[in-house]
Design a protein around this nucleic acid. Structure first.
Lengths: 151, 151
DNA sequence: GTTGAAAGCGAGAACGG
DNA sequence: CCGTTCTCGCTTTCAAC
């Protein structure tokens, strides 16, 4: 924790994380400060990059993207050239909504979001399957969201 | 995709996903509509629950949460009672920021966020390790974020 | 869909505690 | 560091077209 952040800031951040469009009036009541004080703190948190940005959280099911899967990937080789090439290829696919480099039995964990299982099979076979340098793939289809973070 | 959503709505949603605080004036220019038309569409998308909510996306590193790990969990038994009990225990831990039920070699994928590796070892041994009914745990420490979705 | 107007809210500055 | 007051610009929500 950077030292410039106090308890009130954390309180504000928690509220802004849950509802970025909360009215300053309501937020100021919740944290027991004036509107201008809250407003100034938020500006400061934005400048410090503690608040990276604001996002609308969408309902993927209603948008026809009801199928999500985590895919673990192990590469044949972990030389920086191979890793860089893989990362580059990953960025091209809009179906891959997140990608992390990890330590462990696999090298990457991807999250793939598509319309349905048919589309997933197509993506898996025709896109993921064609990326060079993959030694091993392991798919975990998400069937339920028990808890979900934001960002 | 629900039929009430057209191309202009998708365009609006893309912008709102990237920047929920974009000015209606700017957004209306981008989608070539009047401000009131855009405002009405957004209200409609909120009512349809296509926009679930708005969130501030925070910088976890600056908030002292620089260590994130994906943990795959397999339970000893998949009876609904055991699964329900596990889900309940999961909800208690603020360190577990997301949890998905999955199909495949594991039953759950968790995302754990803590301060550093020391804290992670403590959490892993003293919290995750003490949850009953776990047959197998597999940890993937995130070392780099190549691509990151929102929500 | 569009305009235009009215009311409410937010950002920012100034000044005082 | 916080609060009050002020002003300006933006959003929202009407109406009428």
């Amino acid at each position: 924790m950077i030292k410039e952040i106090d308890e009130i800031d954390l309180n504000i951040l928690t509220h802004m994380q849950a509802d970025a469009k909360i009215k300053m009036k309501d937020l100021s009541k919740k944290v027991h400060l004036s509107i201008s004080a809250v407003s100034k703190r938020i500006s400061r948190l934005e400048e410090l990059n503690v608040i990276k940005h604001y996002a609308a959280i969408l309902n993927n099911e209603l948008l026809g993207l009801g199928f999500t899967s985590n895919v673990c990937v192990r590469l044949v080789s972990n030389t920086s050239a191979h890793v860089a090439k893989f990362k580059e290829e990953i960025r091209e696919f809009s179906e891959i909504v997140s990608c992390y480099v990890v330590n462990g039995k696999y090298d990457f964990i991807l999250k793939v979001r598509v319309k349905n299982s048919t589309e997933y099979n197509l993506f898996y076979n025709n896109c993921l399957g064609t990326i060079a340098g993959i030694a091993n793939l392991c798919s975990f289809v998400i069937v339920e969201e028990v808890k979900s973070d934001i960002g």
